[in-house]
Design a protein around this nucleic acid. Structure first.
Lengths: 207, 207
DNA sequence: ATAATTAATGAACACAGTGTTCAATAGCAT
DNA sequence: ATGCTATTGAACACTGTGTTCATTAATTAT
């Protein structure tokens, strides 16, 4: 199982397996996909499959991690805050990059996000987002007395979860909203706050 | 498969199956659990299992839906807004109810949320939260020109996803934070907005 | 308490999928 | 052209599934 072969046969077989595997994932539940299914879709012998992957879980993980690794690249650090002031263009810019990346890798994310039977994917993706927001938010060490340590801990969770949900919804709706619009609304919610973004008021403040 | 039997034998077997099934879920991946495992854990014949459930997926669904049905009950409508003004105590009160409910049904939620291999659960739960927030937010029809229809659509998604993530995190951390504290921080983020809750400022506003 | 009813048992069955082996064949690299 | 190695396909033992059936046991109704 030399995972770095350059043999054309190997490359062909692997590409065939992975591509038809994605097809199958778009058609039916991962649990219901058998190695036999994959092999016959890729037009290879069933035994050949085992020459490349331990089992279908191994294949899933490989495909998944490769796709996620590429996604992580979009997560390069930016300077979103300067002197504890948010720079709107940069925040919107980052959100934009994310939405564009998802759109570009449509097939992959569709297969992974919406196949009931792939439990780990959202988890893995969320933990990627989480890491991103943690390294972004934690070191802020907001100077003022306002910075509540618990909020500092909760916030990355809150934001990363919300992001996953938002992206999934966007996908489910055939991405009919433009990336830019999504990024802008997201920024609005993030800065004004969910409730205020709606135009709601609070009793304890002057109009 | 009379699902409303009162026969003691039936009740006992079902209780045994469901309880040991939860145990197993807390121990290992749903995919790796066999009907044989469940039967022998519950100390019944394997055939008996099939007298009550079609297969392990049927069992999972039954257990899941029963637990979720109970959760939904906590979702009774409250009047969170009066004249587009948020009533803080009520919002915090609702959040509190949720966290308390989760704590009470510890075993169930642990098994369901953290078993890699139960894909549907978070989905189902999220759609429950989503329905809740939709029926809560959509009819608001905020009068002012501020109410952006897209925000109105996005917001329930955003909030429900964030809630699921938050609750899961809370569980993962053995619920070391009190329900009240969680509810209060949540309220803070919701009203002030994620970024402002941290104490961050924006360039386009006076200090 | 007894009879009638219904659930549980356990062994057997055919079936589908898994993961491995092996000799034969085909394709690639040099 | 030759040596290397990937693929093939058939066979194998194995594990789990879902069903059946006669037997036994527990529960309910009278």
């Amino acid at each position: 199982m030399a995972s770095d072969s350059t043999d054309l046969r190997v490359l062909k077989t692997r590409a065939a397996i992975q591509s038809h595997f994605l097809d199958l994932l778009l058609q039916k539940n991962f649990n219901e996909i058998t190695v036999k299914d994959i092999a016959s879709a890729a037009k290879i012998g069933r035994g050949t499959f085992y020459l490349h992957y331990e089992d279908k879980y191994d294949l899933l993980e490989t495909v998944m991690e490769e796709g996620l690794a590429e996604t992580v690249d979009k997560f390069r650090p930016h300077e979103y805050f300067v002197d504890d002031k948010v720079i709107p263009e940069r925040v919107v810019g980052f959100a934009l990059t994310i939405f564009q990346h998802f759109k570009k890798h449509d097939r992959f994310f569709r297969a992974m996000l919406f196949n009931e039977g792939i439990p780990m994917f959202r988890h893995r993706m969320q933990s990627l987002f989480l890491t991103k927001f943690r390294t972004e938010i934690q070191p802020l060490q907001v100077p003022s007395e306002k910075a509540d340590p618990l909020i500092l801990e909760i916030l990355p969770i809150f934001i990363s979860s919300a992001m996953i949900g938002l992206v999934s919804w966007w996908f489910e709706n055939q991405m009919r909203i433009s990336e830019r619009e999504m990024a802008e609304k997201l920024f609005l919610i993030m800065t004004r706050g969910p409730l205020r973004a709606l135009g709601l008021g609070f009793p304890d403040e002057r109009k």
